[in-house]
């Protein structure tokens, strides 16, 4: 029996867009971006795809990527398929708004995982680079009632358990949990592989499965938001920078030291 892996991947606004392109509509409490900025697969979720494919490199495994949203850029969301994932499931419904409320999103994703033909391991990114919540995976694990290991940089599966190395502030820990389990991964897992030409061709031929709220049997009334957004704004920076000059760069460096001494900072 192949190991069944589900990867949760979100489509987000490119977090590395130029700061000048980042705008907030404070009335609508929404981030607005110019159409020239294409969305991307959340960076940590590409790491999650990579973690799944690394497992698949060494044992028989089937990787299903799941994403929830109101609309998708198909070329963007097919990237995990072209990297080597087997299937893509898009949870698409007007109700699946990109909300700051993790409760709702976690319920939707957990319902989709339950609808799969079983699962052994769920792999998520550590956080989505829009709301930076770092909550959805832990919520999904709670709803599914499975063990979870957060912030992994290495994930291995053997004999019905997952063994993972996790980053801690001072180093790392090695953790073990029985399957089924959920893990979240960080960028330390390593660079996601590039799609190969063959992978890209295979991905163009694959059609994603699409499920709506009704397909998932969700009662939206039950899923009232737990967190609401009161305000959204761009913080004002009031810092005035004093540029330290000198005869040349080295002298400017010396002048900087004098300046910091004068300000009693060193």
């Amino acid at each position: 029996m192949p190991l069944k892996i589900a990867v949760l991947a979100k489509q987000v606004i490119d977090p590395e867009m130029p700061a000048t392109a980042f705008q907030v509509d404070s009335g609508a409490k929404k981030v607005v971006t110019p159409p020239s900025i294409a969305p991307v697969v959340n960076g940590f979720d590409e790491n999650a795809v990579e973690a799944a494919l690394l497992i698949k490199d060494s044992q028989e495994a089937a990787v299903t990527v799941i994403s929830s949203g109101t609309s998708f850029a198909m070329d963007v969301m097919k990237k995990p398929l072209s990297m080597g994932a087997d299937e893509l499931v898009l949870l698409q419904d007007d109700a699946f708004q990109n909300t700051i409320d993790s409760f709702f999103t976690a319920q939707v994703l957990a319902a989709a995982i339950r609808k799969l033909d079983g699962f052994d391991l769920v792999i998520c990114g550590r956080q989505a680079s829009d709301w930076d919540n770092a909550q959805v995976p832990l919520g999904v694990a709670e709803i599914l009632g499975v063990s979870c290991i957060a912030l992994c940089r290495k994930v291995e599966v053997k004999d019905g358990t997952v063994v993972a190395e996790c980053t801690t502030p001072a180093g790392y820990t090695v953790n073990e949990a029985p399957l089924p389990a959920l893990v979240t991964v960080s960028n330390e897992l390593g660079q996601p592989r590039y799609p190969t030409l063959r992978g890209i061709m295979a991905a163009t031929r694959k059609n994603p499965t699409t499920w709506t709220a009704a397909d998932l049997g969700l009662d939206l009334e039950e899923l009232q938001p737990r967190v609401s957004l009161r305000e959204l704004f761009i913080p004002q920076r009031i810092q005035e920078c004093e540029i330290i000059e000198g005869d040349d760069a080295a002298d400017a460096g010396r002048q900087l030291a004098f300046k910091l001494r004068e300000a009693k900072l060193i």
Binding site: A249, A250, G253, R254
Partner: peptide
């Protein structure tokens, strides 16, 4: 835009001189 003090220059020139002056001070 975030800094209180800044030096515009190549660190390879700025840092050694800065470090030397810090040592003296």
């Amino acid at each position: 835009k975030e800094a209180r003090y800044g030096v515009v220059g190549d660190w390879q020139q700025v840092v050694p001189a800065f470090q030397e002056a810090v040592r003296e001070l």
